[in-house]
């Protein structure tokens, strides 16, 4: 049974404190939802309850490349305005999670600040001038077992698959999953492929991979369910570097195909990724 709940059909029978709190909280959520539905047309952002010390600012409802400068602009504004009360920021495709210090700010104060920032938000730089970073990739079945699988499944030669993967300038939409793991998009529609049904227990560091419309490279050995097509010699996360992560959200990236010799010269590890690994 699936009962749909609407803001005008809420009725709770009970005689304890929760019988007042639950409908109140649900009502607030639903009212907020109605406001969002009506404001979605003019893309008015929404500030969502994410628990103690956190608000999630929803700036967009769909992934689009032009979202990124807005998310990053809000992140910069938060850094300046929240000052020492700012704990963490997690930018992603359409949202910014803002974690603040509850000892320095009440939820209302934090939300009020965010409302101000969001309503005055302006993007001066559309990111058009930021340099494109090049990521060397050795495309080879020994380190990218899905290279041949994908090519065969898509009816492409390996050469044209590599051309399709190296052609776009990708954007880093988010970092997550593991330190320095960059979610980049968007992959050419011809190359899109679902995650593996069974994730590998161990993916080699540097493995370059595709999942859906996204591409990435694994900074460290980890379990992983993406389609592996090659490997980069570039160290993607090093906590001793000033910029620990090679990629930052907002970066523009192009993959560059390199030979095995070049891969080795750049310090790459050619240990094969066992196909059943």
């Amino acid at each position: 049974m699936h009962v749909s709940l609407r803001a005008d059909t809420l009725c709770v029978h009970d005689d304890n404190e929760a019988s007042v709190t639950v409908p109140g909280a649900i009502r607030a959520v639903l009212d907020d939802d109605v406001r969002w539905q009506t404001s979605r047309m003019n893309r008015s952002p929404r500030i969502e309850n994410a628990g103690v010390g956190a608000w999630l600012v929803r700036l967009f409802d769909m992934i689009e490349e032009q979202n990124l400068p807005w998310v990053m602009a809000l992140a910069r504004e938060c850094e300046q305005t929240f000052g020492v009360a700012l704990i963490d920021l997690v930018p992603s495709y359409t949202t910014l999670l803002v974690q603040y210090d509850p000892l320095r700010m009440s939820p209302d104060q934090a939300r009020g600040l965010l409302q101000q920032l969001v309503s005055a938000l302006a993007v001066t730089d559309d990111g058009g001038d930021s340099p494109v970073r090049e990521l060397p990739v050795w495309y080879d079945p020994s380190v990218g077992p899905e290279l041949l699988v994908l090519a065969e499944g898509k009816g492409l030669s390996v050469t044209s698959l590599i051309e399709l993967h190296t052609a776009p300038v990708y954007q880093v939409f988010a970092l997550g999953f593991a330190p320095g793991f960059a979610f980049m998009g968007s992959v050419d529609p011809e190359l899109r492929a679902p995650r593996l049904a069974t994730p590998r227990k161990r993916v080699y560091p540097g493995s370059v991979a595709i999942a859906g419309s996204q591409t990435s490279a694994y900074p460290a050995a980890s379990p992983g369910g993406w389609n592996l097509i090659g490997r980069t010699p570039t160290v993607l996360f090093d906590r001793n570097r000033e910029q620990m992560s090679y990629f930052q959200v907002g970066d523009k990236v192009r993959m560059v195909s390199v030979s095995k010799d070049e891969f080795l010269r750049l310090g790459g590890d050619t240990t094969p990724q066992e196909a059943d690994g």
């Binding site: 699936h2 909280a25 959520v29 103690v52």
Partner: peptide
């Protein structure tokens, strides 16, 4: 438990 913004997307049941 603090209800979140997507609570309204869950069924009443």
């Amino acid at each position: 438990f603090v209800l979140g913004a997507q609570a309204g997307e869950f069924s009443g049941v």
